[in-house]
């Protein structure tokens, strides 16, 4: 029965092929789970197993070296994870390696990562206990994230409130809508700029002053220790201030007067006209001028006193000419 023989042969091939595929499949799965070949068991203790279950992969620096064989609760805080490690890889893993629980991908299965430790160690042997490395658990990350989230939500709630308040406020909107305010503001800014320019100027002058102070006798100490000088200086400055004020008000008055005179002269009446014809008025004017002269003299005296002070000598020497020139000018101008 040759025909039957061939049929049986075909059937045999068919059956063997099927069983072979089953065996290969089981072997390939089994190889992943290290059921075949020799393995050693090592342990690691963790406080939290983080969902590791038997069958999870164990990787050493990212290479598959074994699987988790069991997870046992040792006491209320300690969990022992037993790992089956492929014997071939076991010689490369040292006892100082660290075990950490990780995740395959962001949301994948749990894995045990073995990381090379610091220092030296011997290759692991059956039953060795590896140190566990505490890792940031995804849960912990999520917890932190949730706190951040809460804060953000509080913040945003308050922000909403603030914005609402701003929206409701009529005054603010009025201000924002007001054109004059902008103009005023611009003017103010201009003033500020001018002021600051002046300040700059003043500062540079002060700088010059300080430099001169340094250059002068060079000992600022003496200025600071010399109380009499300080008193003198203060008095001098007060007087200087007064004088300057007087001078300025005088200048203003003079200004007004001169303009009045000018007008009078043009129109041919008024006090200026009278003055020019009136001798008593001339006298009075002369008096006034004498007074001015006197006050100027007093000022000069003060200046002189200051000048004699060795500290300011250098400065005043320079300043004297200018001052004199200015005062002469101011007198000349009207």
């Amino acid at each position: 029965m040759a025909d039957k023989r061939i049929n049986n042969l075909k059937l045999g091939i068919f059956t063997i092929a099927g069983i072979l595929f089953l065996v290969i499949t089981l072997y390939m799965i089994g190889r992943d789970q290290n059921l075949f070949g020799s393995n050693i068991i090592i342990k690691a203790h963790f406080r939290n197993a983080q969902g590791v279950v038997p069958g999870n992969n164990v990787r050493y620096s990212g290479i598959q070296v074994g699987t988790v064989s069991s997870v046992n609760l040792i006491n209320d805080t300690l969990i022992e994870i037993n790992m089956l490690i492929d014997e071939k890889s076991s010689s490369k893993i040292l006892t100082n390696a660290l075990a950490a629980i990780g995740t395959e991908g962001l949301i994948g299965n749990r894995i045990i990562n073995l990381l090379p430790g610091e220092g030296t160690g011997t290759p692991i042997r059956e039953g060795d206990l590896l140190k566990a490395k505490k890792t940031t658990d995804t849960d912990a990350i999520l917890e932190t994230l949730s706190i951040t989230n809460q804060n953000a939500s509080v913040l945003s709630a308050e922000l909403v409130q603030t914005v609402n308040r701003i929206n409701r406020s009529t005054a603010l909107w009025k201000i924002l809508n007001d054109d004059t305010l902008a103009t005023d503001l611009r003017a103010s800014l201009l003033n500020i700029r001018q002021a600051s320019e002046k300040t700059n100027h003043l500062v540079s002058e002060l700088n010059g002053l300080v430099a001169d102070v340094k250059n002068g006798e060079g000992t600022a100490g003496r200025l600071l220790y010399d109380t009499t000088l300080a008193v003198q200086l203060s008095a001098a400055l007060t007087k200087l201030d007064e004088a300057a004020n007087n001078a300025s008000s005088l200048t203003g008055k003079l200004d007004g007067l001169l303009s009045g005179i000018q007008q009078d002269l043009e129109t041919g009446k008024g006090p200026a006209n009278a003055i020019l014809k009136d001798s008593s008025m001339v006298n009075k004017l002369q008096n006034s001028l004498t007074n001015i002269e006197k006050s100027t003299f007093a000022f000069n005296e003060n200046m002189e006193a200051l000048k004699h002070n060795f500290l300011f000598r250098g400065y005043f020497r320079k300043q004297q000419k200018k001052q004199v020139k200015d005062s002469v000018n101011s007198l000349k101008t009207p």
Partner: peptide
């Protein structure tokens, strides 16, 4: 391909 297929299979599937 077959690494991916068999890595994701377990005895519980087969």
């Amino acid at each position: 391909y077959y690494t991916q297929v068999f890595d994701n299979l377990s005895f519980g599937d087969v």
